[in-house]
Amino acid sequence: MNIRNVEKSTWIFIIIGLLLFIVPFIITGRSMQFIIIQIFIFAIFAMSYDILLGFTGIISFGHVMFFGIGAYSTAIVMDRMDATVLSFFVAILVAVVIASIVSFIVGALTLRLKSHFYAMLTLALAGLFLVAAEKWRSLTGGNDGFTFRLPEILRDSHHLYVLCLVSLVLLFFGLRRFTKSPFGRVLMAIRENEARTESLGYKVLHYKVIASVAAGVVASIAGVLYALSLRFVNTGVFATDLTIDVLLMTIIGGVGTLVGPILGAGLVELAHHWLSGLSDVHWIFERWIILYGTVYILVVIFFPLGIIGTLQSKFMNRSIKGLRNSRKTVGK
């Protein structure tokens, strides 16, 4: 690959990624580092959601099930095996395999239906996983959850930071490549006009299933990291609130941009942190979800493109127009 062909934006992202490696030397407070780690993890989760919502135009209300699968497989594997790096890799493998099987089955069963059904069914399925995690106490420890030990190397907060950042950067570039590939273009075509894509001869269902498997696998990796960062897991990893959080991150940041969800994850996590800190000031801040929900509704009505999307359409008008012109010439 010729280095000159690399886009300008790629260089910017690489530089930002490298700069982030220095951050833990500047911010040494453990709680702040922990928050940044959480932001990375939720950024991964939100990016995986963006593949569904932003690129393929599928709404899932049960995306949290893959996150939960990742978290629980890590916790259970680490708990049953020795706390070594090897068992960590086994945990990732187990998480990815289970998540891809589940997302394949769910996708193959329900993606042929209209968007409403998929949203409802995934909501119900995630509910089923939550109940299963509560009831299957011998495996999951029920509602209380359980703690587990980590291998020596991952106990250090700095190492964990690097691990999460590296995963985020790799997954970001991987997913970016994925969405810019011919395959990703077909996904966007499905988002824009499903019937037309079908009539052009693409098997829409296959593309959608593969997209949902990819999103499920990435979400499960976010779950793995989440469990690692807490060294604890309980049924909260299957809660619908998490799906809502991730929806909010994706939508506020900008759907279909991949960078947007990362930005959204940062904003939402920081806002969450500050608002729950404010609950000592006034009890209304304990109910910060009201504020969240209101912001979310307003964003959906007035800024459906999100922060990055709105900026892009404002400043990069030229490129969109250029695209239209090139389409016209092709048409001639």
Binding site: I59, H116, I244, L247, I289, I290, G293
Partner: peptide, 19 residues
């Protein structure tokens, strides 16, 4: 707009629940 409808009604559900 189906996608917006689904997203917005879920958001309103949350607001109602918290209220």
């Amino acid at each position: 707009n189906h996608i917006q409808q689904i997203l917005i009604t879920l958001g309103f559900m949350l607001v109602l629940q918290e209220f």
